[in-house]
Design a protein around this nucleic acid. Sequence first.
DNA 1: TCTGGGGTCCTAGGACCC
DNA 2: TCTGGGGTCCTAGGACCC
Length: 408
Amino acid sequence: MALPAPRLCCLDLDTFFVSVERLLDPSLNGKPVVVGALPGQRGVVTSSSYEARALGVRSGMSLTEAYRLAPRAVYVPTRHGIYGDYSARVRQIAEGYTPVSQIASIDEMFLDFSGCESLYFVPGDDGPDATIERTVRRLTDEIQTRVGLPSSAGIATSRSVAKVASGAAKPRGVLMVRAGAEQSFLAPLPVRKFPGIGPVAEEKLTALGMKTLRDVMTAPLSTLQGVLGAWAEPLQRACRGQGGHELGRERPAFQEFDPQGQTLGTISNERTFREDVRDPASIQAMLCSLCERVCYRARTRGVKARTVTLKLRYADFETLERSRTFAATASELEVYRVVQDLFRKHRERRTAIRLLGIRLSNLEVERQLSLFDDHGPVHRVVDGVRQRFGYDALHLALAARDREHEEP
DNA sequence: TCTGGGGTCCTAGGACCC
DNA sequence: TCTGGGGTCCTAGGACCC
């Protein structure tokens, strides 16, 4: 096996949603921009510009708090469909650079440049690492020129180090961590910078006096296991830059199709009401509308679900999920029946409801449409109309009532 | 007027089967 | 007469990521 060389690249779009909004409305350039929702609406910050960050705005923060910190920033609602189109264009460019790549999320992907050194070599390159680094710069330049979006990249011998490096490279930077330099690169960073260490793990590590990745690297394994369990060993290895040298085993965020029919992911939709509701009609209408959405998505993906999960959040934020498994379906009428039943059985409190959600899981590839499937022909017509005229062209009567509660 | 919405992975207990 | 283990499926919850 070849010695690991820094050939894994994590490509990350800088303040992606904000950058797209600026592309569509150049008057936003140079201003603090917050993407999430309009001020006054329920929601959190999904993306913020560097100008807004300078005022203390962070993603995940409630809009109320963001508005308090940055009342003069420009607030725009999230428009996922549009970002998806830009993401696809970036992806297409990047995929032209290497045969092996993986989508991690809407604004992040991994590229494996192993074996591509001679392909990109030009006279004057100071060794194969320099060739790859220069090529990645060319890639980020091309994304800027052709799509208009700024991006950053990290290059390293392992996936997780490349990911940390891409963060350190921002904005508009490319950072290569050479083989053997992983530990010195990671050591001074706060533990939270490492992918997989979130608020809970950070808290546990802090309680042990571990603040930096150096502390994690050098801790006795048994100490780490005491707080992190089975995860301690792979985490410590990853922090030392060991392992993760291939993209092969990692999974993309959106599992489209598995020939074995095993891991097809999940399909979910959830909605927070603009105001907490108790009215049964509004609740039923929302459930119906959610069923329609997830089932439509399932059918367009060619899958059926065996498990349906109802998510329920009360006004006081208490949240529960209740699921049921049955014969696979992608019919909203069948799913709706199950959902109603779950709701009746498990809504124990009379408290007003803040959020409702539905998730389809245990997905199976849909076999040939059965002639005996009652709902098949109806769905073909409904889905066909939607593909021509848009999703909102048709709704079940109950769901249409729900839409009256939404903003125009 | 604190706290969105889309995901993945992991754990743990109970049912059920052999 | 207490009682085994392994495997798989189902359910609920939690951590984490963007």
